[in-house]
Design a protein around this nucleic acid. Structure first.
Lengths: 333, 333
DNA sequence: CTGTTAGCGCGTTCAT
DNA sequence: ATGAACGCGCTAACAG
């Protein structure tokens, strides 16, 4: 099925058929009517690949995330999709599995014009993938990381101010009277974790609270891990702390499970603030004070910048989101 | 950038260049080396649209879901992606927003060869979209609905046995001694809801428990709605029931919130079973007995059947998943 | 082993 | 208003 078949059937030329079907260019009413009729009869459907080849546009965007099974990205996926959908683009999800190789594979698809642009949440953003993106010279947006940007770069950044986010969380506890605050975070080699630790330090210094590296506990953002780490900590240390910040709600759940077991009450024995402000934060008891990183907005802003690129913007830009602290029972005085 | 440019630059013919780059067909070592070298220098990338046009294959699958912001589909998305990814396909998510129009739009993309196949979770499956899918005569899989299937159809079905699922839930409560069981479900016009109600009836009849339509409460699967509906119910009725089945975990949370407020204890005052077996079920107190519909498997099986189609299977098939009941505190004796 | 040539299906320019 | 002809970039059949 193609416009050639329709041309043969109707006796008109291919170009007349093409004009009739696309609606652009001249075509008499009568011929158009016949052509549309025949197209319907023959169940004609335009071939998208041919269109893409001709018009150099796919109407597709790839959204790459490090872990497709991590609910953390669910809101971001929605945010990215929301605006793209409004503009007639379809979002493709690409699971990069925290592998540089997969990220490069995805960037290669951009180079091959498999899509019109990409939005990438990089796991460990390095010169390698930034340069690969530069080489494509095609529209791209990077979420949640910031490495380096030149005015003529073909990509934009949207990122969270993780330092500020942790400052909010820590300062909140200090202002509620906490003097010794435990920090649960991810591996320090990850940019996010190290930035957050930085924010924690900033506040302690500001209030002249001594820094004790032994109360910075590294986990992996999972509930079970936080449970084990905290349990082990309590075995070897007295409950002389009065605050805890966990780097996500799941870790907070792990901490609370331990508390339940050993009879520690939150917020009576210590106050707790976590990150991500997921549904859990509102459902669990006590309700969790939590930092909202606005993942939906992050995704939506990312797609907004990408759409601008697709519409012709050429100078590189970036956008920083400000986190919000939602105060609930777990940090009540 | 194209193989023509490389041909011009190297002085070889297009076909030699094509053979060298694709790796198929004959090409001498020396020429191949030069060609690859020049391709790299010129930053050559094959054009995917041209490839698609030629080979009639996109390596893309569209997965259509009724609500992208409903976490219920999150696991299904992962399931669909898992197998496709292994086979080199990229999954595109298409939000049909419970609109027939959007579903038809998506089916049209299949007809246009925008993708190699589709997997569709239809909101309200009708003759209209089944026929639209038939007309494309291209690979498709329908999840979670079953209308009608002919041996030569171009689509397959994977679905949950919702009747059986509700039978499991209801019978579990009966066996734990419940005599009067409230049912919270969705709108009865939806296939899923009516099937579940059917399962509920089946069990009551089996055990000679009288059916009382006043204790079948229709909600919309959201926590807030269940909260309001249950609160209103308690205002007008005594607590003379001893069991509740809610059609998802979110509704169960709404019910439990009301219980907290008015001082009803679960499972002491009544036993509760819900559906979906989400993370919530394990985190909330009491932990929820819940029916697992195996959404991940549903998605994965769907993509499996689609891949079979893509590999040449032509006879229609279907697959039914058996639900599993996880028993936890909320229905303990 | 290599080169010529012919599509794939569409959009578009350029005559008429 | 209409049609002939070309090009987008790649693959593959065919001849040499």
């Amino acid at each position: 099925m193609s416009i050639y078949k329709i041309a043969a059937k109707t006796g008109f030329s291919v170009s007349t058929v093409a004009r009739a079907l696309s609606g652009t260019g001249y075509c008499s009413k009568e011929k158009k009517k016949i052509i549309l009729q025949v197209a319907k009869e023959m169940n004609y459907k335009p071939n998208h690949a041919a269109k893409e080849l001709r018009q150099k546009e796919t109407k597709r965007i790839i959204f790459g995330i490090p872990e497709i099974d991590n609910p953390y990205y669910f809101k971001m996926i929605q945010g990215v999709n929301s605006l793209l959908e409004e503009h007639g683009y379809i979002m493709m999800i690409f699971n990069t599995k925290k592998q540089l190789k997969k990220e490069l594979e995805m960037i290669d698809l951009l180079a091959q014009k498999y899509c019109d642009g990409i939005i990438l949440v990089s796991h460990d953003f390095s010169e390698t993938n930034v340069n690969a993106i530069r080489e494509t010279n095609r529209p791209a947006v990077i979420l949640n990381r910031y490495l380096d940007q030149r005015p003529d770069d073909n990509f934009d950044y949207v990122y969270n101010n993780h330092i500020q986010a942790m400052e909010f969380a820590t300062e909140h506890l200090v202002q509620r009277g906490c003097k010794k605050i435990l920090l649960f975070t991810g591996d320090q080699s990850e940019q996010t974790s190290s930035e957050r630790t930085q924010g924690y330090y900033n506040v302690l210094r500001k209030y002249n609270i001594p820094i004790d590296k032994k109360i910075i506990l590294n986990g992996d953002y999972r509930k079970d891990c936080a449970y084990e780490v905290f349990k082990k900590f309590l075995r070897n240390n007295p409950v002389d702390f009065d605050g805890i910040v966990t780097s996500n709600d799941m870790m907070a759940l792990g901490v609370l499970d331990v508390c339940d077991e050993v009879g520690i009450k939150v917020p009576d024995n210590f106050k707790l603030v976590s990150f991500d402000n997921t549904d859990m934060a509102n459902i669990i008891k006590p309700k969790l004070s939590s930092i909202d990183l606005h993942e939906y907005e992050l995704g939506r802003k990312g797609s907004e910048l990408l759409l601008e690129r697709l519409n012709g913007r050429v100078t590189a830009t970036n956008y920083t989101l400000t986190p919000t602290l939602y105060v609930r029972q777990s940090s009540e005085i």
